[in-house]
């Protein structure tokens, strides 16, 4: 499926998604909710840049260890919505959240004023649009999140870095040059390094903000394959402007337009039988 260029609909519908879904406790520490249970739920979420209301009353459930894709034309608010989950907007002055994103199983509101954004970011990782490795060694890039959490033991760091690099399908390429600068990697490798960096801290949700928009098709295919594998250990929320990508990698698709959530459902259903006119117009390429 990865080597031959199959049609998007094939891979989306048949791409191994019917395999039995077993809840595996990957680290033996965290209570893992059954797959498909709500991991997070946006409830009446609005977001403001100053007086501009960029998100309008969004209600959306993010299921545990599933891939949920956010699609929509440029400026529809999909990235803005994604960045609410790890409180990235807190870095920009004059922004305001309204409503809630409930986070399960702890059941607290991620965007509440009294919840520290650092606490949120410790549990929800993010991969950005352009690969943004630190200009440090490959090893230090992956180890950084653990160092922040106070891990000093060298053996433990090495073990975790290896696990994260394996998880991001970069170990074979990087194992002999862990001390080389991350900037010597190719663009696609850098993006997988960023995924490894996020994975090393064992996030409960991993946010992807158009992770392949700066990559060539081959690197893109590798990242997509990786995202499909990540479903087994982490809940994924991905923003993409590429509808074929959404169809290929996601279980659920949410279509946003002008800051509102228009439609959400099983990816195969949204792409084959959208219930809203706007969704149909978008996925058939009438605008966007």
């Amino acid at each position: 499926m990865e080597t031959t260029m199959s049609t998007p609909s094939d891979s989306a519908i048949a791409g191994g998604h019917d395999a039995p879904r077993i809840a595996i406790n990957m680290d033996g520490q965290r209570d893992v909710a059954p797959r498909n249970a709500a991991k997070a739920r946006a409830e009446g979420l609005s977001f403001y840049y100053g007086a501009h209301r960029a998100l309008k009353d969004i209600n959306l459930e993010i299921p545990e260890r599933m891939v949920t894709a956010l699609i929509g034309p440029s400026g529809c608010g999909k990235s803005t919505f994604l960045r609410c989950f790890n409180r990235m907007h807190d870095l920009t002055p004059n922004t305001r959240y309204d409503g809630a994103i409930h986070f399960y199983p702890d059941d607290f509101n991620l965007v509440a004023k009294d919840v520290d954004p650092i606490e949120v970011r410790m549990r929800i990782g993010m991969v950005f649009q352009k690969p943004n490795p630190f200009p440090k060694s490959i090893f230090e890039n992956v180890a950084y999140g653990l160092r922040l959490r106070g891990v000093r033991n060298r053996a433990l760091l090495e073990e975790q870095v290896e696990a994260a690099l394996r998880g991001a399908a970069l170990w074979e390429e990087a194992k002999d040059r862990l001390q080389a600068s991350a900037l010597t990697l190719s663009g696609g490798q850098q993006q997988r390094l960023c995924i490894a960096r996020a994975l090393a801290t064992r996030p409960e949700i991993l946010l992807f903000d158009e992770p392949t928009s700066a990559l060539d098709p081959i690197a893109t295919a590798k990242i997509e394959e990786l995202i499909a594998q990540l479903r087994d250990q982490v809940t994924v929320l991905i923003v993409t402007h590429n509808m074929q990508q959404a169809a290929r990698v996601s279980d659920f698709t949410a279509f946003m337009y002008l800051g509102e959530l228009v439609e959400v459902g099983d990816t195969s259903r949204v792409f084959t039988n959208p219930s809203k006119k706007a969704t149909e117009d978008y996925i058939t390429g009438r605008y966007g």
Partner: peptide, 27 residues
Amino acid sequence: VPRAIREAAYGLGATRWEVTKDHVLPY
């Protein structure tokens, strides 16, 4: 120092001081 680098560090749960001492100052 690009905003993307700061966001990467903040995204991992760093405080402002950690972003400053581990990234902004060295770079």
